[in-house]
Design a protein around this nucleic acid. Sequence first.
DNA 1: TGTCTCTTTGTAGCATTGTCTCATTGTACC
DNA 2: GGTACAATGAGACAATGCTACAAAGAGACA
Lengths: 133, 133
Amino acid sequence: MIELDFRSHIPIYAQIVERIKHLIATEVIQSGDQLPTVRQLASELQVNFNTIARAYRMLDEAGVLSTQQGRGTYVLEPLLPQRAERLRESALEELTRSFLDEAARMGFTPDDVERVQAVLIKKRRSPSARDDG
Amino acid sequence: MIELDFRSHIPIYAQIVERIKHLIATEVIQSGDQLPTVRQLASELQVNFNTIARAYRMLDEAGVLSTQQGRGTYVLEPLLPQRAERLRESALEELTRSFLDEAARMGFTPDDVERVQAVLIKKRRSPSARDDG
DNA sequence: TGTCTCTTTGTAGCATTGTCTCATTGTACC
DNA sequence: GGTACAATGAGACAATGCTACAAAGAGACA
């Protein structure tokens, strides 16, 4: 359900936060659902359970999850539309920021990014164009 | 395993880079192997751990190693230089593609992405601009 | 019903890992 | 001599992992 990129220099806990936000945004997991325990998910992803705990804690502080010692971790009610929209916007910003960081780390300039991206977006807008890369 | 020539005018970090490349080329160390920690190797070679870190970072950027903060440093699959360049470009494509997918799944249009991204890139180009959210 | 014990949950503190920023050293050039 | 730059070193920092811990639930039993 969640995949990590250990080669990326985006911290593991940050990747997990993003993935979970995404799973909730796409309603793969929903309000009230229990998430895997820190140890379960840690074992599954081959990382330390404290790294999972850190991600859960950040999402807890962000009002997305509720972590309860001895009980587990649960998805909270969806936020009010207003707040949800703000969260959505900030999620996009964070996602974009990570993306730009990673590209920069790989030695690409913003121009490179915009160039490649423009092509890809164009393709998406005209689905007839085949991607025979 | 690695020996240095302190009298040589070749920088230490460069010597280390070469030695490690050689060790990988001769398969003394192989894909997936963990390298000594920066401090271990630094102690062994009697140099500062930052010098080792520098060598590791260069090899990371060259796609030879994967350095992971808090975890360690690992040998990656070897790549032919030719392939590496092609791979570099397609890696950016792949990164961009998954970024756009992710944004799309979150319900954002390419326009949304371009709008947010343009702002972020602009900020990066003029770091003086304050981020007053 | 109460409580005891064991298991399962998340938490906290510290050790280990690589990273960052700045200071120091040595060398090349003017 | 003075300046600029690269190489190295020192210390603080951030990310991850290990160990011990505390809180909550499940079952046994008086």
